[in-house]
Amino acid sequence: MSDQGVDERAAVRAFRERVGLPALVDVHTHFMPDRVLKKVWAYFDGAGPLVGRVWPIQYRQEEDERIALLRGFGVRAFTSMLYPHKPGMAVWLNAWAADFAARTPDCLRTATLFPEPGVEAYVKEAVAGGARVFKAHVQVGGYDPNDALLDPAWGLLAEAGVPVVTHCGSGPVPGRFTGPGPIRALLARHPRLRLVVAHLGMPEYAEFMTLAEQYGEVRLDTTMAFTDFTEDIAPFRRDSETLARLAALGDRVLLGTDFPNIPYPYVHQLEALERLGLGDDWLRAVCYGNGASLFGVDGEVAAGRGGPEGDVL
């Protein structure tokens, strides 16, 4: 491991020790087929139209090195968030993700979907095969989450209780179907859908917190929220009322980071959460307890199904 990796590992460990965290559960990390990930990185390097600004990728290591970094940070469970931008991709991506999870036991098997003929069938197959979390990217996919083709799949996921991490906020650049409106309509039809709003709904933080207050299965992930990079373009209001609402939702806020596609060190996301001043109990729930409970992580580790041993296992 490089000196940088050792230093970062020590910085994350120091955060965990301050807060009293046994480990981390990160619900928003990206692992993809190599050629797909390299295209994603090239898009960020070129400040593509859905990025809108310079965005230097912090972690460009090979796959095995990135996995080792997460384990070194004390991440007990993570995801392989991947997403199609056109029809015909989801089945192939789901097959890759299933193989990745089979050879990476601390990765929660991840799947995705797209509004296309056959979506209900392959979502059902993924759930039956053990998919534990889905990724929906309304911005990149450019689709309406209320597309009739998706409705049976949403119903299936709601019935199965499988969380769906969904990029539906209008950041960093608005899409045709981003924002709280389409998600409000979706939840009206599927109120039991375990929808995890990625990036805390950036920049419509307040509106998505309202949806979480209205629907008991809606959760929020912290991906890139509160960091210096994001505060420059989509600041989160720090008034007492807004912070009190966030504190009250503490049992349904989940740590997400966007690793490896972040323009700053991993520890900065953790420190950005800490400087909100919501207390160690809130941080322990967000960074570990909520995710561990949602996915049964503690039970798996106790039964010997966790990842390879690291400094926290």
Rank of each mutant, 00 (worst) to 15 (best):
D147K: 11
A95H: 00
G5E: 11
W41N: 01
P263M: 12
K39E: 14
V253I: 15
G46H: 12
F78H: 09
V19W: 02
G306N: 09
A153P: 12
P105W: 07
V123H: 07
E213P: 04
A23R: 06
P308Y: 11
F177K: 10
A158S: 15
R275Q: 12
G216S: 14
R176M: 13
T79L: 05
G171Q: 07
D64L: 13
G48T: 07
M1D: 13
D311W: 15
E274M: 08
G291Y: 01
E63V: 04
G5V: 05
V133D: 02
G179T: 07
G52E: 12
F31L: 11
L186Q: 11
T223F: 06
G250D: 03
D281A: 15
A188M: 07
K38W: 12
P191G: 08
P84H: 10
G250Y: 06
R219G: 01
L193V: 11
L200N: 04
G179V: 01
A128M: 00
D34S: 15
P235T: 06
A285V: 05
L113W: 04
P263C: 04
E65L: 09
M32D: 01
T222A: 03
A136Q: 08
V6H: 14
G256E: 01
A148E: 15
V133E: 02
A153M: 12
L149V: 03
L37Y: 13
S2N: 15
Q139T: 13
D106V: 02
E274K: 09
V267T: 06
G175S: 12
F73P: 04
R35F: 11
H85M: 14
P235D: 07
L270T: 07
V173P: 03
E274D: 14
W154R: 09
R219M: 13
F114S: 01
A131M: 10
Y59T: 03
Y215H: 09
I57G: 05
P265F: 05
L93H: 06
L243E: 13
T223V: 10
V12Y: 02
A272C: 08
R189N: 04
A160W: 10
D281S: 09
I67N: 03
V218P: 02
I233D: 12
W154Q: 00
L220G: 02
A90F: 10
A101M: 08
A212H: 02
L156R: 14
D232L: 15
T104N: 08
R16V: 00
H85C: 11
P145Q: 03
C107S: 12
R237A: 14
L50I: 12
M32T: 10
F78G: 00
K39M: 13
F100S: 01
L157M: 12
E65V: 11
G256W: 02
G279E: 10
V196I: 14
D3L: 15
L69P: 03
F73N: 06
E217C: 09
V253P: 02
S293T: 14
L93I: 07
S2V: 08
L243S: 08
L211P: 00
F226E: 04
G291R: 05
F134Q: 06
Y215R: 06
